[in-house]
Design a binder for these strands. Structure first.
Lengths: 326, 326
DNA sequence: TCGAACATCTGGAACGTTCCAGATCGATGC
DNA sequence: GCATCGATCTGGAACGTTCCAGATGTTCGA
């Protein structure tokens, strides 16, 4: 049953007996405790190295009741927006001496819920959720076990969950204002999303259109070929898509239809992912300060671990990034 | 120090005393052991549910010496090729009742080595490595603690590490043969890679060119603007890029330069990622059976856990996927 | 010279499981 | 009526750490 190669891994006791001291002393020495003489410490370090000792995080976590490890739950590995947030969370965690373990669960709510439980059962000290698909009640329950922060999604008022988000409504308004300033009036919004962020962006679009006196021009369409085809035929001069992925679709569609971008059609996205930079022409889009999101998320978790009880919801101001597609 | 909300989580003992039985019985009941009477089992399940009991994976792992958990190490979250492999590993692991924890470490060798150690220290039963940046000696050492399989990269002969890879040389040859059959002679290879897969693809390209009697046409250039510009000026009629990411760059460059693809320039990639499907025109590329890679990787780990001692290196045959860019 | 203070080290309990060896008890076979 | 058996349950050791309470030995001041 055990692998053929399985020499049982050395423990503190092995190091201790090899060095002729007690296991407690080995533990102290390896953790750099002050009350260990320099000579002994060095001898112990050498022996530990020689026998290939590595501490068991499992045992340590069990004893200490904390793991120095954060869990990150992510639903999509193929949306750069999510993965870039995770990367920024990792960077921030590392600065705090914490490490991050990722659990991935597609858009399957049940599976995502399992992954949340798994991270908690493993002893994660906190959870960063980068997914709008994890059911909120699962997170509320999770928050009773360890601090939870949602990134890119705002939690319900008194759920026990913190959140870091950008102001999607305002971001959408920035886009509309930009297009209006460029002289556009027929500005359509392309979205397929029923997720909170998508809804907020749509609301922001509609409000900004009304504010610009363009109530009659409000037009929301799905990103499917038929709807897009109709859109391009009816004199629409600018399209604001709910995210970069869908903006790129619109772009491709317009170029295939022989339209010149941005002269005949302006296209704007949201998220400022690598897709926007890579697109031809490069996409105008909305930037969400993802690096700040990561570090704020980690900061919020640490505050909770230090005892904060009230929920905190941070909202970051988005910035318009103008490129050549508008 | 402990969070204000911290009610210590219930343990087996709590459930046991609430149900008026021993902790051993609770353990047996929750794990579905046969020797527990139906009546008691049910009572225990109810009580466990009521007090919100969840087993500690940490304690279980410590006691059992195995975690039912695989670790996956990945260096880049933004290359769809890697993330799609991870997704296929996850699917395969789930079928075996194992879960997968991801550790991400960019292209920082030191950090990746740390992540490998962390997964092992946490008790991962096996490691899937989807990164060419983890130093091989780190993996060789890791393989003494738990089975390790590399995906998309072939291990050294007797390292104790298994691998699942595709035949990059053959894949590159397929591309060249396809282009030759289409009448191309000036076929250049675009690559920037010093990684094993990149090198093998280049070797395959060169060999296939020679086999087609095109020794004089062998041309390898870096994917930078200057080199690409020169390439497009000198009558090159087809470009084979080392992966889809770079193929898309070539595509953009060619289109920007006013070339028609595929009429004036054929472009072919490698990996068959979502990028290839999305590109305009859609990219001809090489498919690597990523789903098979994931399930073979998990299968190899399981065999090791069951005692296999010899290294196994699986090589899958790649398939050409012809789309409209060639 | 003696106790105190300090530096250094040790033993054992505890963390929450699993699992082995055995306890308990009613039913069964003879 | 007695040993045996099976079904059901229990106690305690063990996994590899950490950490507390204390042991040991050395040095110092008076």
């Amino acid at each position: 049953m055990p692998p053929a190669s399985a020499r049982p891994r050395p423990t503190l006791v092995d190091v201790a007996s090899a060095a002729g001291v007690s296991k407690s002393l080995v533990s102290l020495a390896l953790r750099g405790d002050a009350g260990v003489s320099e000579r002994t410490r060095e001898r112990i370090l050498v022996v530990a190295e020689r026998v290939g000792y590595r501490p068991s995080l499992t045992a340590r976590t069990l004893k200490q009741g904390r793991s120095m490890m954060l869990g990150a739950v992510i639903s999509s590995l193929d949306n750069p927006y999510h993965t870039e947030i995770v990367a920024s969370v990792e960077a921030a965690a590392e600065d705090s001496g914490l490490s991050v373990l990722l659990a991935h669960g597609s858009r399957d709510r049940g599976r995502l819920a399992d992954r949340v439980q798994q991270l908690l059962d493993l002893g994660a000290d906190g959870l960063v959720v980068v997914s709008s698909w994890v059911p909120e009640e699962v997170l509320v329950a999770a928050a009773r076990r360890a601090p939870v922060v949602m990134v890119g999604r705002t939690a319900e008022p008194v759920s026990g969950i913190d959140s870091v988000n950008n102001d999607d409504e305002h971001g959408a308004a920035l886009v509309v204002e930009h297009l209006v300033a460029r002289g556009h009036r027929r500005i359509a919004h392309v979205t397929s999303s029923t997720r909170p962020a998508g809804i907020a962006r749509r609301r922001g679009y509609e409000a900004a259109m009304r504010a610009a006196g363009l109530d009659d021009e409000v037009r929301v369409v799905a990103p499917d070929p038929v709807a897009l085809g109709a859109l391009l035929d009816d004199g629409t001069s600018a399209v604001f898509a709910r995210n970069d992925v869908e903006a790129v679709d619109v772009l491709d569609h317009a170029l295939d239809a022989g339209l010149r971008v941005p002269d005949e059609l302006a296209v704007v996205g949201y998220d400022d992912t690598v897709l926007a930079r890579r697109a031809r022409p490069a996409l105008t889009t909305v930037q969400q300060q993802r690096d700040v999101m990561g570090s704020r998320a980690v900061a919020l978790l640490r505050e909770r671990l230090d005892g904060r009880a009230e929920d905190v919801h941070e909202v970051l101001e988005p910035r318009l990034v103008v490129r050549s597609s508008s």
